[in-house]
């Protein structure tokens, strides 16, 4: 199976991933190669097999409803690209 450059661009947009125009071709080639590799999975009949999402055969542990975290805004925002008045700033969001 092979991916077209248009498909690569579509996926890249879905993943909000900038890709240089000159690299699109090579991504299409690499991803197509990966898909060929994956195509081997269809050799095996997996009907009736229960999908395994996780290696752990356990159930979720629950946390007591207790507030344990304090305000650490200063520390966290010291590493932020752009903040003002305690807010993270991003280009204007249009709704």
């Amino acid at each position: 199976m092979s991916l077209t450059t248009d498909e690569v661009k579509k996926i890249a947009h879905l993943a909000r991933l900038g890709i240089d125009e000159q690299d699109v071709e090579s991504y299409a080639r690499d991803l197509s190669g990966m898909l060929d590799l994956m195509a081997r999975m269809s050799e095996l009949n997996t009907e009736g097999v229960d999908p395994m999402a996780h290696p752990m055969d356990q159930v979720q542990r629950l946390r007591a409803d207790v507030v344990t975290e304090q305000d650490n805004r200063e520390k966290f925002q010291a590493i932020a690209p752009q903040v003002e008045a305690g807010l993270y700033l991003v280009p204007k969001v249009i709704e």
């Binding site: 996926i11 993943a15 991933l17 991003v90």
Partner: peptide
């Protein structure tokens, strides 16, 4: 200087990640 939100995302991620990481993100997204 991102011009808008999509530009912020695509360029930050496009410039911040290397090729192998991008390949795998694309593969997984697909």
């Amino acid at each position: 200087n991102p011009v808008d939100l999509t530009d912020l995302y695509t360029r930050s991620r496009g410039e911040g990640f290397g090729k192998e990481v991008k390949r795998r993100i694309l593969m997984g997204t697909y």
